[in-house]
Nucleic acid binder design. Sequence first.
DNA 1: TCTGGGGTCCTAGGACCC
DNA 2: TCTGGGGTCCTAGGACCC
Length: 429
Amino acid sequence: MTHSTSQLFALVDVNNFYVSCERVFNPKLQNRAVVVLSNNDGCAVARSNEVKALGVKMGTPWFQMQDLARKHKIIALSSNYTLYGDMSNRVMTILRDYSPHVEVYSIDESFVSLNGMRGMWDSHSVMGQDIRQRVLQWTGLPVCVGIAPSKTLSKLANHLAKKKPEFNGVCDLTALCESETRTYFSSLDVGEVWGIGRRISERLRNMGIDTVQALRDTSPKDLRQHFGVVMERTVNELNGVSCLSLDEVSPAKKQIISSRSFGTLVTTYKELREAVSTYMLTAAEKLRQQDSICSAVHVFIHTNRFREQDAQYSNGMTVPLTEATNDTRRLIAAALYGLKRIYQPGYLYKKAGVMLLDLTPASVRQASLFRGFDDRSDKVMQVMDSLNESNGRNTIYLASAGIQHKWAALFESKTPCYTTRWEDVPKAR
DNA sequence: TCTGGGGTCCTAGGACCC
DNA sequence: TCTGGGGTCCTAGGACCC
């Protein structure tokens, strides 16, 4: 890269994260074709390299790949989010040993700032290899590292580190000369660029811009006319001008969603009420965890759009709260108020969900005009949360959430919580 | 039979105001 | 013939991400 800059980022990303987590605890999965399925065992959300090589795309419904699965002995596992979350924390902790400035971007990847670290290592690649080796040794997970002067470029470098064997898992774009970079970028589809999705890459291709290099060679100002500021920033980033900074502290969520597809189709109001109440337990807990209150609740339900023979219905309702709260009981009451108004009998419902909107910090809550602060509410919620934390989920909940949950999603091939439940910790023999 | 879930940001357009 | 125009706020929807 010819562009000089004071910024330097490493993007560290776990390969095939969910599958790799499963392999750590079940070595028989090594070198086998493995997928991890989404909720309800619906779609493949993680694929081993063997499965990717078969051409299976991200999000392919499991039932659609049955033939392929039989033929190639693909192993399908239900997702085990508790395990993945714990493994993720372990990786991120290791990364913080390398740099004080880490942005955890998603469950399986982090941006690490390398600013001011020149001289601490023989080269950035040496450091990258050290990261790979240590993460593998301490967690059993394989990672790749991409190093570049902007976030967007570090994502591409990471992509090259994964795809091109000559990099051996670490690609430092600053170590390449311009002509090498051009060659690599000319071989990459424009859709590989972070922020260029399906729609935009289609439009770009129609304009004759079909590789990363072609996009990089286009004037950012011109592209802004067609695509807006985000595109302009992306092209600048591709040219080594860092426009996106490291966000080390994750800001509080602006909305919280909890929704699930049902394991079976649901018709009655009673079952929907149970589901909506159950989802709200989760959402409200998250709300309190980030110390926020919310002043509006959205509830939605819909039928299965893939079953074209069925009558379709989809509706949602936003219910404003007279007073911002994080009390599960009030939030459930609001959601059920909305549900009662949108529920129509006679449909086969597939999914329901709740959203908490207009979130604000609990610390700036205004006293209710009529009742003052509701200390009792806070205390009840604290007791509920601490019981559920120490004694396991759903130790205590509200009656409207019901008990049977015949509608609950299926997880037929879920692996044990190896790292977070004592009963599930692997035993050495 | 069987098709995920949880987020963010930006923009266009309508409502409303002066 | 031809009936203002500009600013702000809000929301819905699009597009993207993992």
